[in-house]
Design a protein around this nucleic acid. Structure first.
Lengths: 294, 294
DNA sequence: GATTAAATTGAACCGATGGTATAAACTGTT
DNA sequence: AACAGTTTATACCATCGGTTCAATTTAATC
């Protein structure tokens, strides 16, 4: 993206942070960034589009940061999850992302509404999948309910905790408290067997592209899992694992997976693994293949 | 309030419901209500003030409805609470109250922001006090946390439940599910002893007037309780109870307690109760006295 | 260094908005 | 009939988001 355009987004973000979106006029942005109205509408077709561009930029940053906290770590470790949530809360507070969301989520602009809905569904989906990592399979039918409740509790807790402790809030404390609660809720709801929303419904809240992407990630995850099982006990086992896990992390967690790096790891594997699993490897290559970038 | 002014509020409300607040202009309201701009600004000093007037009207209606569901019922009965929440959710959905709140909670207008914050705190306070009725004293230090979480869960659940079931949502189901969860959470959090927010902090979120009002209600509640204890076993005991409970309900639950009715009940009591409790009765009279209206 | 394409400027302009001002018309009361 | 209070209609204001466009500056090409 154009350097200057990115600069305008950043500067506008500063204005939004201390005045809010609605309260800053386009003229304010022009004055503050020293660009002309013509240039502005050359970059963005409307004030709302600028906001969406800002959202995209912030969310991308957030996702990469969140995912980078996972690589190499144990997905089932609750402390990793806590750290991820904590980081997201902090960058969110710094950027006023949720505040900006709330400010325009009910604006008359359909594009913005749709975009925010999608983003929220994506966040929900992420929590849901992390819960799959964290809790037992018995709980799976209830994990969407739990993800929904988790976000509700977290949001509400931070809101009122901030109201008493001002800007000196200890996010870590709130996150810890909230995660502790949801752990017990998951257990309780699994015991009682009460379900409010079917996890499959989650799919209807996300755009198709997102879904195909997600399903491919799941396929690869499964393929890697199968392969690891077959390789278990063989010579150089840990060597294979390292390469496989790298491919998996890169593909499932990076926003822009480094295609050639994964390809290289695949080639290395192809020349070293036992013949009995070459078929599985080809399967993996096939899944990744579709994701190739120019 | 002026009849016509009230009509304008109602008509404007209709427009807000199907277009949203921001998307309906003052001109829209003028056309729809057939009043002139001059009259509008004679009634309301701004579009925002009209909205606040609407909020006040809706919230008052909601509170009276909510409280009327309590009179004569057992405050410790969870089903009564469920019914109250359900009713509030339904009238709220009909009126789009929460939607309107969300739409303007972050508007540049300070008055609106302040008003909404207060309303939310009042709702929170109500849930907190109802939780005091519902759960044991051991849980008291954790009930504010629970009230906060309850509202978060409820809000989030209805949001996503509606996303799958459209407008044909079964509110009762969501309320039931959510209350079931919070019951377990109260138990769990009481056992673990974890606290996030001190219940006393609630006082800082409410205006002073509200607080004095609330404290007087608590005083009266306590005074009635003491008196009932002393009267226990005496002749005409149930007769006294009836009068005392009426006074209590009227004073603590009605938005505009019927002063003369309470006074009449008090006089009846004064002439019939044993001398040993006349002092307690005077205490009650004193508490109510300050509440008198012209 | 001249040519050319692209990016930028700035000002004029648009319709709609929330809000103001005011003189005239209408209303009910005594 | 006289009165005050309410309501009306209209003209007016500044600001907003957004459009248009000719003129100028910038940067890449040969």
């Amino acid at each position: 993206m154009n350097d200057r355009k990115q600069q305008v987004i950043i500067k506008a973000h500063e204005l939004f942070i201390d005045r809010g979106f609605q309260a800053t006029s386009i003229q304010d942005i022009l004055d503050y960034t020293n660009i002309s109205k013509g240039t502005f509408y050359n970059y963005f077709s409307s004030k709302n589009e600028l906001l969406i561009a800002l959202f995209k930029s912030l969310l991308e940053e957030m996702e990469t940061k969140r995912n980078s906290l996972m690589t190499g770590k144990d997905a089932a470790n609750i402390d990793v999850f806590k750290k991820q949530i904590e980081t997201q809360m902090n960058t969110n507070r710094k950027n006023r992302l949720l505040t900006l969301f709330e400010e325009v989520v009910l604006s008359p602009d359909e594009d913005i509404k749709e975009y925010i809905k999608e983003s929220q569904a994506r966040m929900l989906q992420w929590v849901y999948h992390r819960f799959e990592d964290l809790f037992s399979v018995d709980s799976k039918p209830y994990l969407l309910d739990c993800a929904i409740m988790f976000l509700g509790i977290l949001h509400q807790n931070t809101k009122y905790y901030a109201r008493t402790h001002g800007s000196t809030v200890n996010i870590q404390l709130v996150v810890n408290y909230t995660v502790n609660r949801i752990e017990k809720i998951v257990k309780e709801v699994t015991d009682s067997g009460e379900q409010l929303i079917e996890p499959d419904d989650l799919k209807n809240w996300l755009p198709d592209a997102e879904l195909k992407d997600q399903s491919r990630k799941e396929q690869l995850n499964y393929a890697v899992l199968c392969m690891k099982k077959k390789l278990k006990g063989s010579a150089d086992c840990s060597h294979y694992y390292e390469l496989l896990e790298f491919i998996r992390d890169e593909f499932t967690q990076s926003n822009e997976p480094r295609y050639h790096l994964m390809k290289s790891a695949l080639t290395t594997l192809q020349t070293t693994i036992p013949e009995s699993v070459t078929e599985d490897l080809m399967k993996i290559e096939e899944i990744i293949g579709g994701q190739a970038r120019a």
